[in-house]
Nucleic acid binder design. Structure first.
Length: 549
DNA sequence: AAGGCGAACAACCGCGAACTG
DNA sequence: GCAGTTCGCGGTTGTTCGCCT
């Protein structure tokens, strides 16, 4: 049996460490290994060992040095703290800038990035980046300065021109920086990553959504053998790619690409076919060059390609679990996060099946409509019982059961896509010169009861050389360029029975949002197609902000 | 002064690639 | 070729510290 490290033994290792050590539950070869913070005594032992034996063969460290640490722990401690030539202290401005650039090119390849920063460890860089992401996201600021976006775009453009032969590999590898892993299937041209996208909370679907949004080539693309969760995600792609089978209005691809992208997107050379929003039309947020990490967010990490199905890596950002079923009573529904829920929702089945669209064909949209209608039904049933409430009550067992059943069926209460949303949405988000989008949309107006923390907006770019993207006139932090103008609007456009749709979406949004939504839908889908009215915009922002906080 | 909160940092865990016998 | 081991990487969790109320 394993022997538990005795008090005296531990004291020997941690003379200067009075805290009780964490002892690993398991034992390794009869020795219980220690976990938790390293003591200086342990450090000394490890340093001494490495001096004598050199790096490597870390599992032998424990055997030969008397350290009660596993090899992995030893390696990590050495690499991150004990290794000579390590730089201590905060990152310099130059280093920060380099990290940003490297991340724009490499994504979450911390080790590779560390190779470009002598004396810095991948862990340091990773921590720095993650905290930076959170900080900037909270402040509603873009992750990347426009210069970096532009630079990466140009490089990627060149690479695309140069290396289009196989269409998927080595697109970005001709950079001075090695970018071996950022590979996308050639099918996904123009998909995905966002040059300038608003920072929205946790719309996990975003990476998928956005890729699909920009991709007309993704029609009905779904492998039958994919895991069902994957299939769901791909159904999103299918939806976003605007599967013609949906039987709804085709997106104005050609027109849009002609009139808005080529001209107005000239700085970046990509296009987003859906953006007819008069506000954002100057720069389409979607449809970036494939493979550009710069324009995705870092968390849309440099995924290894799967042959056809898109591998969706989950981001590192951690968000609280979305309680899809707990909308309702006091707070408005977390619309954006609910996208996750819908994405994750299984195809409609049973008695509450939607009559709108085929779930197999329409993917996210159908899931949305189905769920919305489901909620709407639940709501209506509730209303029959009590007409006083206008929102789905979270305590209602029927509504809850619907949700719970679906989560159970799919086995993942947390959206597997859930976190990636930030990635996309939090990447390059030029702040309009006129001010932050958050500033212009006081949440309290929309949700008087909500307690939204109004955080002072950080300067656009705090690192030297970073400066506010004043050249960009469009505020792309506006989510209407994303969910508003694309996802919801498509939902509306796709629905043949718009009254059903709006009712259903009202169930999602809550009645507070419903009227605005109807205005939005009526005012934009008919004439402008994909825009979003100011009411809708306000709601988006409000929901965004609420879910952000 | 105390508690809450978030940022920053340290460390662990799981997975996959590389290596080895 | 294959199984076991080692190592590295990226994601996640835990801890500490400082600021604010």
């Amino acid at each position: 049996m394993g022997r538990v490290m005795s008090e005296s033994e531990d004291e020997m290792l941690s003379k200067d460490h009075t805290d009780s050590p964490m002892i690993d539950d398991g034992n390794y070869g009869g020795i219980v290994l220690k976990k938790g913070p390293w003591t200086s005594a342990e450090d000394a032992i490890l340093v001494d060992y490495v001096k004598k034996h050199g790096e490597g063969n870390w599992n032998a460290v424990q055997k030969h040095s008397g350290l009660f640490r596993c090899g992995k722990s030893c390696r990590l401690r050495w690499a991150n703290h004990l290794r000579p030539n390590l730089k201590k202290g905060g990152f310099t401005a130059e280093e920060e800038w380099l990290i940003i650039e490297l991340h724009a090119k490499m994504g979450n390849k911390w080790a590779r990035m560390a190779a470009h920063l002598p004396g810095r460890t991948d862990n340091e860089i990773k921590n720095y980046w993650n905290t930076r992401i959170k900080r900037r996201q909270r402040a509603g600021l873009p992750l990347y300065p426009p210069e970096v976006c532009l630079q990466a775009m140009q490089e990627n453009q060149q690479n695309e021109n140069a290396g289009r032969d196989d269409g998927r590999h080595d697109l970005l590898q001709t950079n001075s920086c090695e970018i071996p892993d950022v590979i996308f299937d050639s099918l996904k041209a123009n998909q995905g990553v966002l040059p300038y996208v608003p920072e929205l909370p946790d719309i996990s679907a975003s990476s998928t959504l956005m890729r699909g949004f920009g991709s007309s080539q993704y029609h009905s693309f779904m492998l039958p053998t994919v895991h069902r969760q994957k299939r769901l995600r791909e159904s999103v792609i299918s939806f976003c790619g605007y599967d013609g089978s949906v039987g709804s209005e085709p997106p104005p691809f050609e027109q849009t690409q002609d009139d808005s992208c080529d001209d107005k997107l000239s700085p970046f050379g990509f296009s987003f076919p859906y953006d007819h929003d008069p506000i954002t039309q100057n720069l389409s947020p979607f449809g970036v060059n494939q493979g550009s990490h710069a324009l995705s967010n870092g968390n849309f990490s440099a995924s290894k390609p799967t042959s056809r199905a898109v591998k969706l890596e989950l981001p590192s950002l951690q968000y609280p679990e979305t309680d899809f079923c707990s909308w309702g009573s006091s707070s408005p529904p977390p619309l954006l996060e609910s996208v996750d829920a819908f994405i994750q929702s299984p195809p409609p089945s049973g008695t509450l099946q939607s009559d709108c669209l085929s779930p197999q064909n329409s993917g996210l949209l159908d899931a949305l409509l189905h769920e919305a209608k489901t909620l709407s039904c639940a709501k209506n049933q509730l209303s029959e019982k009590s007409s006083s409430s206008s929102t789905v009550r979270p305590t209602d067992s029927s509504a809850l059961n619907i949700c719970e059943t679906k989560w159970e069926d799919y086995g993942d209460p947390i959206s597997p896509l859930g976190n990636s949303a930030t990635s996309i949405f939090s990447s390059c988000t030029p702040i309009s010169a006129s001010g932050s989008s958050l500033d212009e949309n006081p949440v309290a107006e929309t949700f008087p009861g909500s307690n939204v923390k109004s955080e002072p907006v950080e300067e656009a770019w705090t690192i030297d050389g970073e400066k506010e993207g004043s050249a960009t006139q469009v505020d792309f932090s506006r989510p209407d360029a994303l969910l508003g103008s694309c996802w919801l609007e498509q939902s509306v456009a796709c629905a043949k029975d718009q009254s059903i749709t709006t009712d259903a979406i009202a169930a999602l949004l809550g009645d507070d949002l419903h009227n605005d939504y109807k205005n939005m839908a009526a005012g934009t889908t008919s004439s402008q197609g994909w825009g979003l009215g100011s009411c809708g915009w306000n709601n988006m922002v409000s929901v965004y902000q609420m879910s952000e906080h």
